[in-house]
C-alpha cells in the first residue's frame, strides 16, 4: 500500500518552476530513494511535499488525503518528518534543549518518555546533553537531527542527503540507522542521496529525477543495475555496479 503518492505535481519557487508533472508512489514501511544529478529537483521534491516549495498543481496524497497546499506546520502534525540537509539542528541550543524543542506541542511527561526512547537509540547523545548542538561532530549532529525528527513519532520520514560531508564510516552508520528505522520501527522512508550506489543498496524502491521530471520509477536494484541510466546520470561505473 502506498503511504504517499504524488500525482502530476508541478512545483517551484515563486514563478520559477522546478518540478514538472512529477508522479510517484512511496510504499509503506519501505525505503524509497530519490537519486539524480545536481539541481534536478530532489530537494525541491521533498520541500514540495512538506509545503515549503510552492505547489502549482497536482496532488500529494498522504494517508488518503490531499496535503498539497497545506502549510508545513500542519503537515508536520499529520505525521511527516523532514530532516533537511543543512541547519537541521538548533545550533545555539544544547542537545537537551533541542530534544525538548522537538517535542513542541506534546505534553511534558510524554516528551520526557520520548526523549528517553531516542536516547536509547543514540546513546552517544546522552554524553552530549549539555553541549551546544553547534559544537557536535558532523555525525553526532546528523544523529541529533534524526533524533529530533523521531521524537514526533512520524509515519513517514524524509531525509535530504543525510550522509553528505560525513566520513565514509559514519555515513554507513547513518544509513544503517535509516534501515533500522524501517525494520524495527516500521517507518516509511523517503531518502534523497548523493551517494546513489550505497543508498540504492539499502533501498527498496528507486526514483530517478532528471531536470525536474521522473525518468525512472521502479525497484532499487533495477535502477542500480540498469545498463544506461546508472552510467548516464549517477556516475556509476560499469564494474562498480557489477560488484
Amino acid at each position: 500500500m502506498a503511504s504517499l503518492r504524488l500525482e502530476k505535481v508541478n512545483a517551484g519557487y515563486g514563478r520559477l518552476q522546478i518540478l514538472f508533472d512529477v508522479s510517484f508512489e512511496v510504499p509503506e514501511r519501505k525505503i524509497t530513494v530519490i537519486v539524480g544529478p545536481n539541481g534536478s529537483g530532489k530537494s525541491t521534491t521533498l520541500k514540495a511535499i512538506f509545503g515549503i516549495a510552492n505547489v502549482y498543481s497536482g496532488k500529494i496524497i498522504f494517508d488518503g488525503e490531499n496535503i498539497a497546499g497545506l502549510p508545513p506546520h500542519r503537515i508536520a502534525k499529520r505525521g511527516i518528518a523532514y530532516v533537511p540537509q543543512t541547519d537541521n539542528v538548533f545550533a545555539k541550543l544544547t542537545v537537551r534543549e533541542n530534544l525538548k524543542m522537538a517535542g513542541y506541542g506534546f505534553p511534558e511527561d510524554q516528551i520526557r518518555d520520548r526523549v528517553e526512547e531516542v536516547l536509547e537509540m543514540f546513546p552517544i547523545l546522552r554524553e552530549r546533553m549539555n553541549q551546544k548542538a553547534g559544537t557536535l561532530s558532523g555525525g553526532e549532529r546528523q544523529m541529533l537531527a534524526i533524533a529530533i525528527a523521531l521524537i514526533r513519532r512520524p509515519k513517514l520520514m524524509m531525509f535530504d542527503e543525510p550522509t553528505a560531508a560525513l566520513a565514509p564510516k559514519i555515513a554507513l552508520e547513518i544509513l544503517d540507522i535509516i534501515q533500522k528505522l524501517r525494520d524495527e520501527h516500521g517507518i516509511t522512508i523517503l531518502l534523497v542521496e548523493q551517494n546513489a550506489k550505497k543508498a540504492l543498496e539499502i533501498g527498496d524502491k528507486g526514483i530517478l529525477l532528471v531536470g525536474g521530471r521522473v525518468v525512472f520509477e521502479g525497484g532499487a536494484r533495477e535502477l542500480l543495475e540498469h545498463p544506461d541510466l546508472g552510467r548516464m546520470y549517477l556516475g556509476l561505473v560499469g564494474e562498480e555496479v557489477a560488484k
Binding site: 541547519d87 538548533f90 514526533r152
Partner: peptide, 12 residues
C-alpha cells in the same frame, strides 16, 4: 533561531 527547522517541528 531557525525558522525552517521550527516549521518542520510543527511551529506555525
Amino acid at each position: 533561531e531557525n525558522p525552517a527547522l521550527a516549521q518542520v517541528l510543527g511551529v506555525n
